[in-house]
């Protein structure tokens, strides 16, 4: 035995007890590790979502002072849709348009960084994320300056005749969509970059070698292979865009308000929580439906 202690392995007093001990500990360990975080998510994500559903069925005639009674008021939903129909449609329309623009400008950016940037790759990547370092509200307000009626941009567009003499950008749908595109673009570019970066350039060369034109190579090779990134990116872009109301509030006017603005006012100023909850719950249901059909159609479960 003296040799064994000499060469290292410390003598073990009760070698027979250990494995069973550690094996049962191993079985419980993962649950122990999950407990605090999981409990937090259940308590402050799952339970509140259920409460939101409950609130959406409260009697709408109640008030903050008298309290609300649960009357399973399913009529809250048609009422809320009737009240906020245009805003709901606008939310999805603006978010969809912004997503399309985002793909059109985000794809070349992601592709350029992944395949064309060489040793500047990391620098450019930081550049994509860097604008997010500033406060969301502050950079959105900066657009207010850029798009303002006395600003250089509007002046130029008026001079070349794209805008009328008193045409403006601020307080128009254009400004809102532009703001949405701007604020969520990095969420689209990063996952797209990740899948384009993994793309083996030899595949593109092979495609070219097999008589595919650059366009066909893109459609037949690059695009399908970047699909997981594109799916993840569009979802990460679209979801916050639909629920956003900051851009509509800061860059738009009352005719550009989105569903978030209505929910916001229902809870915080008009004091109609059941209506706000109904709209919010509806929004979540629609988005989940879109996410799951989209993910399935795109044939990638990677994002979930």
């Amino acid at each position: 035995m003296s040799l064994l202690t000499g060469v290292g392995a410390r003598p073990v007093s009760a070698p027979d007890k250990r494995p069973d001990d550690s094996r049962s500990r191993r079985r419980w360990l993962p649950y122990l590790l999950l407990l605090p975080g999981g409990a937090w998510l259940i308590l402050f994500f799952i339970v509140p979502t259920l409460q939101l559903g409950a609130t959406s069925l409260y009697d709408p005639t109640g008030s903050v002072t008298t309290g609300y009674a649960m009357t399973w008021e399913f009529g809250n939903y048609p009422d809320a849709i009737a009240y906020a129909g245009p805003q709901i449609l606008r939310s999805f329309a603006y978010a969809a348009i912004a997503t399309v623009i985002g793909i059109l400008i985000g794809y070349p950016l992601a592709y350029a960084i992944a395949q064309k940037a060489g040793r500047w790759k990391n620098v450019l990547l930081v550049c994509v994320v860097a604008p997010m370092f500033t406060s969301f509200l502050v950079r959105t307000l900066a657009w207010k300056t850029i798009l303002s009626d006395n600003g250089a941009l509007v002046g130029f567009l008026r001079d070349v005749g794209i805008l009328g003499a008193d045409g403006r950008l601020l307080a128009t749908p254009i400004a809102v969509v532009l703001g949405l595109t701007y604020n969520f673009l990095p969420f689209l570019v990063l996952p797209l970059y990740a899948s384009l970066e993994r793309l083996d350039t030899r595949l593109l060369e092979a495609s070219g070698d097999l008589y595919a034109s650059p366009t066909r190579t893109f459609v037949k090779v690059t695009l399908p292979l970047s699909m997981p990134g594109l799916v993840a990116g569009t979802l990460l872009f679209f979801i916050p865009a639909v629920g956003d109301y900051i851009n509509a509030a800061l860059l738009g006017n009352t005719n550009t308000s989105m569903v978030g603005n209505v929910v916001n006012s229902a809870f915080l100023s008009r004091q109609e929580p059941p209506q706000g909850a109904a709209l919010s719950f509806l929004l979540m249901a629609i988005i989940l439906a879109i996410v799951f059909t989209y993910v399935r159609r795109a044939g990638t479960d990677e994002v979930v």
Partner: peptide, 14 residues
Amino acid sequence: ATPELVMGTSLLAL
């Protein structure tokens, strides 16, 4: 995957 709007209002409801 949930919009902040939904999480914010859910927590408020809770």
